[in-house]
Design a protein around this nucleic acid. Sequence first.
DNA 1: ACTTAAGCGAGACGGTACGTCTCGTCTTAAC
DNA 2: GTTAAGACGAGACGTACCGTCTCGCTTAAGT
Lengths: 192, 192, 192, 192
Amino acid sequence: MTDRQPSRRGRPRDKRTHDAVLAATRAILLEHGYPALTIEAVAARAETARTTVYRSWPTKGELVLDAAGDDIAIGVVPDTGSTRGDLEIAVRQLTEAFSRRIVAIVMLAVIANLDDDPSMARTFRDKTVYPWRSSAAAALERGVARGDLPAETDVQFLLDVIVGTVFQRTVINAIPATDGLPAAIVDLVLDR
Amino acid sequence: MTDRQPSRRGRPRDKRTHDAVLAATRAILLEHGYPALTIEAVAARAETARTTVYRSWPTKGELVLDAAGDDIAIGVVPDTGSTRGDLEIAVRQLTEAFSRRIVAIVMLAVIANLDDDPSMARTFRDKTVYPWRSSAAAALERGVARGDLPAETDVQFLLDVIVGTVFQRTVINAIPATDGLPAAIVDLVLDR
Amino acid sequence: MTDRQPSRRGRPRDKRTHDAVLAATRAILLEHGYPALTIEAVAARAETARTTVYRSWPTKGELVLDAAGDDIAIGVVPDTGSTRGDLEIAVRQLTEAFSRRIVAIVMLAVIANLDDDPSMARTFRDKTVYPWRSSAAAALERGVARGDLPAETDVQFLLDVIVGTVFQRTVINAIPATDGLPAAIVDLVLDR
Amino acid sequence: MTDRQPSRRGRPRDKRTHDAVLAATRAILLEHGYPALTIEAVAARAETARTTVYRSWPTKGELVLDAAGDDIAIGVVPDTGSTRGDLEIAVRQLTEAFSRRIVAIVMLAVIANLDDDPSMARTFRDKTVYPWRSSAAAALERGVARGDLPAETDVQFLLDVIVGTVFQRTVINAIPATDGLPAAIVDLVLDR
DNA sequence: ACTTAAGCGAGACGGTACGTCTCGTCTTAAC
DNA sequence: GTTAAGACGAGACGTACCGTCTCGCTTAAGT
């Protein structure tokens, strides 16, 4: 994710070192959170030199997102033929993802750097939110097509409602997700 | 705001210095954001010593929240007799507040420090969110009493929907608030 | 030597730390030479922080010259009434000084930084060479007045002969100084 | 110049690269001095890889002396039949050499590394000082044989006087060499 | 009016982390 | 077997802030 064209010239990256750095990053994030994630600490934990870390990941943002890897993926909403079913799956995917410690930590990091390093937010969105969001949008549109939702439905608005509510609950208020939440959200969106 | 018992003996705090520090803090927050807010920079801008800042505000969180002062207040939802009217006012208060630059900056700071400095989040909640939230809860409960909302309504859940949606729109997605947003949210909550 | 006006404001310098740094510097210079003198090593040996060293001595040159202190002084040529006697003392002072390990090390450091940090050379000259050189010039001038040296004597040239020869012998060629050297040099200068 | 047996097997060294490195070294020495001479900079300027430099010149000293090449030669004192004439030529050769920017730079580098890298000093001596010094010694000995110098003359001492004085004047004090200097030095050595 | 506790400014202290530079070595593909 | 390319671990650089700690000076309330 980091190297553009992995250039065939010169000594290749040492995969074991590379992986050790990513593992160290994940460990520190999970154990102590993003504010404690210093390049110094990562290098020490990975038993390598600080310069080696800088070589592959010029910014902390890139390191964090690379280290998080697929652990922060949210998923893609399927098309089961049922609007309510699809949406319940969609919300469940979201609550499940936002409840994962690593996801919450990375989101807080992204927010902390929002106007400092906007590229981090962009990467996070592209890697994580976008696939879910566009497939969820498709599910809502199918619902509109089927007549389960009014024709004038503002899909993006509903997505913000869903994401915002789940974020508020699980991350900000740290309320453990229950089965009730997805149902309640879907009710809100559909039943009217 | 910070010291418990302001002891009658000795030289009293210098109000002009105190205010200069708060002004410097606000200025830096607005001009460069929270990550650039160092005690060093605040003291320099206020033309005072670092120690003077530390004396009154042991942590950056306290300083920021004290400096933001009433600029981050959201307001209290009135009782106009109309459920829809009250809620529209409530949402409008929220969008207006979250659209203020200083509020967004402080909220992002609070969230970034969520598990690093939970006291900051608590203070922010108490000073800012709680008054609005409890009065908005009252409005919803009046709505239930009036029969505008079903008896089994989960008030806290609806508040999370409202807050989460507005936060998502205005702060995360940075979509300029329009009149349509409050109406849409109220529709979502009421019409069913 | 480092602080201009020792400013009465603020916390005073910690003399023990200060002295420890100078002692560490001297020790490293004598044990490992100037190229091994890193601020890192000095701080470690003095058991203090790197920043503390930088605070008092912005450049390595200032640190070295301050640490060497009076150990690199050469002395002042006396006026005993005898031209030959004064000159022999003068040359002996020089050979003795240039034979001291600390002096040789500092001179090499000064030379290494000649065009990199000319201020170091200047300070070294002022502290060390100048007092000797001006008093030796006086001795030569007394010799001219007495008729022990020709009236047209180029005093500065003779001083360069003396300094250059001693430097060449003791520092460059590392020939242990013998009593013969001062005598030979004085003969060269006087007997003609 | 550096590698022992230039092995017949495999790809031969690229002469153009080799020369480019030496040229880059000379350029950096003249433009920025010895302290700025990093292998990094040399390789960059020669548009080659760092490793290529290391392969041919394991130490900076070898590189510098190889790059300086004949530009730091001093010359050999001729035998013209006249003691005074030979010595004047000898001193003139020395002042001319020490006045060359590249010579001064290399000499300062050699001196700065005196006890750090003694092999550099040795090589410099052998390549540069020794030919001049032994031929100048011969000139002095011819002078003794002719009776122009006393029988008990310490030839090595006089050579140190000459070298030391010229070094002091031209390199340390950076006094532009005049015709007067050689004459004055020869007078000092001969007239007595 | 005099004492005196506390605030103020200045600045030193030990410390952590930064991001960069250079080192000398090592590993690979290409020639 | 050299060359170009570039990664590697290492170490030092000089800087920015941190939060703490003296200091001498100032200020006003309480005696």
